[in-house]
Amino acid sequence: MSEISRADVEHLATLAHISMTEEELTTMAGELAVIVDSVKKVSEAVSEDVPATSHPLPLTNVFREDVVGEVFTEEQSLLNAPDAEDGRFKVPAILDEE
């Protein structure tokens, strides 16, 4: 019946990198089911031949010239870093490589 199952939410939360408790997953599955049920009508509202509009602006070709601008110093770059070492941002171990 529901468009979105608890397992779906779990998968989506993994994709979105948000840890969720069992309770949160269940609650959100219920809420999203209602919302999705309401918004899914859009697919019936349009036909094949309607072009998509990704943007309200009809502008194209907005470019920047290839001229070097200001840069951060190492200190500025790392100013807000939760953790750093050797001028680099430090992060916990990565499980697998892209």
């Binding site: 070492e85 050797d86 001028g87 680099r88 941002f89 430090k90 992060v91 916990p92 171990a93 990565i94 697998d96 490589e97």
Partner: peptide, 10 residues
């Protein structure tokens, strides 16, 4: 990458 304790990003 495998077995590293942590990683540094530039």
């Amino acid at each position: 990458i495998q077995g590293a304790d942590y990683s540094l990003v530039d």
